[in-house]
């Protein structure tokens, strides 16, 4: 309940994060929609066979397909960078409540480098762990991978939350790879918090999956459902971050960045 109260107190922040996400996604969608409409010119689908038309369109305009893929990746990259940059502010606000802009700005500047560095270490570490796991699971039934890989992804996400919280709130040294590595260990050593984080992530994916289902099924107002789902997902993600903050200071065995 405390976490929910904290979250409610920071609703403007949640809203701002959500709007940022929706803006990035909507810009990407707008660009694609405009390109497709321009490519079709005065023409429309000859019948209701949307999948055939999409396949024919993709075959006729491969550059738009690759452009869409690049656009999607860039959206993700942009979102990742924006979130890494904003994370110190969000963590400080969620952990310590309303603060003056100067105080927040100071904490942001003080921990931004560490947060970006630990994010990069996590990206590297998570990539290696997932690749190793995927190769270990090769040849096993696909269902095993379908369970194991998301679990490890979720673990990595919570470990990243822990690292960032330790850097912002407790001065852990983000540039040290050990900070990232220890976060994985701490995540595993706190099964209750980990389970909560995994459940919150699962809930995040579930609401977005429901939105995707609405789009696929052609439900009326599908875009509104997807956007609403994204808002819920941001709120759930903030709760997950609060779970990481609640872990308190952890022995990361690395000096603070400013002592380096």
């Amino acid at each position: 309940m405390t976490a929910l109260r904290t979250l409610a107190g920071a609703w403007r922040w949640v809203l701002a994060l959500w709007l940022g996400e929706v803006a990035i996604a909507a810009a990407f969608a707008f660009a694609l929609r405009t390109h497709v409409a321009a490519a079709l010119s005065d023409f429309a689908l000859p019948d209701d066979r949307l999948l055939y038309a999409a396949a024919e369109f993709a075959g006729a305009h491969p550059q738009l397909v690759s452009g869409a893929i690049v656009g999607l990746l860039l959206s993700g990259l942009l979102g990742g960078v924006v979130w890494a940059v904003l994370a110190p502010l969000v963590i400080a606000r969620l952990a310590d409540g309303p603060q003056s802009a100067a105080a927040l700005g100071g904490r942001w500047l003080g921990s931004l480098g560490g947060v970006i560095a630990t994010t990069a270490w996590h990206a590297l570490g998570r990539g290696l762990v997932l690749m190793g796991l995927a190769s270990a699971l090769a040849g096993m039934p696909g269902a095993v991978s379908a369970v194991a890989l998301p679990l490890v992804w979720g673990l990595g996400t919570f470990a990243l939350d822990l690292s960032r919280a330790q850097v912002v709130l407790h001065g852990a040294r983000g540039t040290a790879p050990r900070t990232a590595a220890m976060a994985w260990l701490h995540a595993i050593k706190r099964p209750k918090l980990l389970a909560l984080a995994l459940a919150l992530q699962a809930a995040q994916w579930l609401v977005l999956f429901a939105g995707l289902a609405a789009v696929v099924q052609g439900t009326g107002g599908a875009v509104a459902i997807v956007r609403s789902g994204a808002l819920v997902a941001v709120a759930l993600g903030s709760l997950r971050l609060l779970a990481a903050i609640s872990a308190g200071p952890l022995p990361m065995a690395a000096e603070p960045d400013d002592a380096a």
């Binding site: 969608a29 995040q204 994916w205 994204a230």
Partner: peptide
């Protein structure tokens, strides 16, 4: 309505929000 740009746009926005959730909060 050309029948294609709207559904592709919706799919693109949904995909982007899924990716952003993967990398964001």
């Amino acid at each position: 309505d050309d029948g294609l740009s709207q559904p592709l746009g919706q799919a693109a926005e949904t995909a982007a929000l899924l990716v952003l959730t993967g990398v964001g909060p």
